[in-house]
Design a protein around this nucleic acid. Structure first.
Lengths: 126, 126
DNA sequence: TATTATAGTTAGTGTCGGCTAACTTGTCAA
DNA sequence: TTGACAAGTTAGCCGACACTAACTATAATA
């Protein structure tokens, strides 16, 4: 069972929250994603099974090395797509929102192409 | 009930097939999309309910005016995103595939921005 | 200490959108 | 005329992924 869009979103969220705070709880994830506690609970359970997430003794949620690696890739994609869209003239809010949905559906090849473009011309805005 | 990703794909397919042949049947749609007959049957039923599709006396599937309008928009999006990706250096096959998945998730604003870009710089390839 | 609030889980539901199996119907050829 | 095939539909299933209601466990506070 490989990870899907929903799982990617959770991973990315955990990654983002981990950078703001050293402790991430299910409830924080739910608050960020606007999902209910049971939805988060189930999703985290699945990510644990896949070895992408663990919970420590206090119940805090952490990414495993594998999870962190994946999360970074997803996060990087999000950033890059946002930048591309902003380069094209899309306002930041819309760019971030659209990137969030698109990021799960682009191939490696397209991602590389966007990377090249943004490295060359882009990133008006960090 | 508003149309979703799956419905958009069916509409676009009907649109494409309608341009190749004046008669479009469920079986043709299934062959194109690689979906089973019952899946197509159900989807077409839903599109009929939404007034986007009708079947004529012989059972052939046609877009209504509303359906054609929607289908055109979706098709145009697909074309534009493909061009954008090709402009970025993505090969045609990959560009078309990725565009197919992305097209359902971009906002009007982003679409407009892509349109401007492609009109200005793009379309190396029709 | 007893109460209350917070966090997590369990159980069960609903929608979307695929699927197979099996039935119906119409056409065409033996 | 009958038998077979092609196309469509019906019935029912499944996975993904949200939800609510309700239970549990723990921590904080009156």
């Amino acid at each position: 069972m490989t990870i899907r869009e929903s799982g990617e979103m959770y991973l990315e969220t955990i990654y983002i929250l981990s950078q703001k705070s050293s402790t991430v709880r299910g409830i924080d994830i739910g608050a960020y994603m606007l999902f209910s506690k049971p939805s988060v609970s189930r999703a985290i359970g699945l990510l644990k099974k896949e070895g992408l997430v663990i919970t420590d003794e206090q119940g805090y949620i952490k990414l495993t090395d594998a999870g962190e690696k994946k999360a970074k890739i997803i996060y990087e994609r999000h950033q890059l797509i946002s930048r591309l869209l902003m380069d094209l003239g899309v306002d930041e809010k819309t760019a971030i929102e659209d990137a969030c949905r698109i990021e799960h559906y682009i191939s490696e090849k397209t991602f590389d192409a966007i990377k090249k473009h943004v490295d060359k011309y882009g990133a008006k805005k960090s």
